[in-house]
């Protein structure tokens, strides 16, 4: 058996306003896997992702690489789990690309030389070398998405967690992003309802609806199970 990168058992979460976010979710992700979490709007995908690096905390423990998420090791957890938010304007909050990509490494206490090295390596990975001095608000959405991915790659994460990576992208930018993601040799967890993306990138699919895991299996099987997809609003009726 391969190493467990993410291990969640019976996780439930209720938002402060009483909305049920997650109900008894169990999920194990192994090293090297690409897992898609699909589900209709409001299924709890983003809520689940926010539990992976401890921004939200539910009733039961989430284990990352064998470490339970707790106050003591949040920094280490957040280095291991690279969470990329849906809207790159949320992810890129600095005035220059360099500051944004270097933000994580700086917070981890890297030296100046190491920060610079990590920034240029991360930008090279996503094909954005030479953008260091640009301002995020001058970039196209596709470019912003790539930089957003670079901001977490700079931390050398064990697992890359992406929330709707292809939303708002035109087909060309979308497929070039898919190619980029395929080329990155890390474990990936991708929340999306873009089934084309799932087909191209993921071997395993988890279906989430109303905060519950309703299916978990090989992408091939689940994406061809039309009745299942229909029941959860992921395929057209009829």
């Amino acid at each position: 058996m391969k190493d467990k990168v993410i291990d969640i058992k019976n996780l439930s979460f209720v938002y402060p306003d009483g909305t049920r976010g997650l109900r008894e979710v169990s999920l194990t992700v192994y090293a090297g896997e690409s897992v898609a979490i699909i589900g209709p709007n409001g299924a709890g995908k983003s809520t689940l992702l926010l539990h992976l690096n401890g921004v939200l905390r539910g009733n039961s423990t989430v284990e990352i690489c064998g470490m339970p998420v707790s106050d003591g090791n949040l920094k280490e957890i957040r280095r291991k789990v690279g969470l990329v938010f849906q809207d790159p304007d949320d992810q890129l909050f600095s005035l220059t690309v360099f500051d944004d990509v270097g933000f994580g490494p700086l917070n981890m206490g890297c030296s100046e030389a190491e920060v610079k090295e990590r920034v240029s390596r991360a930008l090279e990975w996503v094909g954005m070398t030479g953008y260091e001095k640009r301002s995020p608000h001058h970039l196209s959405i596709g470019e912003k998405k790539r930089i957003a991915i670079a901001t977490v790659l700079a931390l050398d994460p064990e697992v890359l967690v992406l929330d709707e990576p292809t939303s708002n992208l035109d087909p060309r930018s979308k497929w070039s992003l898919v190619a980029l993601l395929t080329s990155l040799p890390v474990t990936k967890v991708i929340a999306t309802h873009d089934l084309e993306l799932v087909r191209a990138l993921c071997q395993r699919v988890v279906v989430l609806d109303r905060g519950e895991v309703v299916a978990d299996g090989p992408a091939e099987t689940i994406l061809n199970d039309l009745p299942l997809l229909r029941a959860h609003g992921l395929a057209p009726e009829g």
């Binding site: 957040r78 969470l83 909050f93 917070n107 901001t151």
Partner: peptide, 9 residues
């Protein structure tokens, strides 16, 4: 949340 996710303290 995005800042915290990258180790902001």
């Amino acid at each position: 949340a995005a800042m915290v996710s990258r180790g902001f303290d």
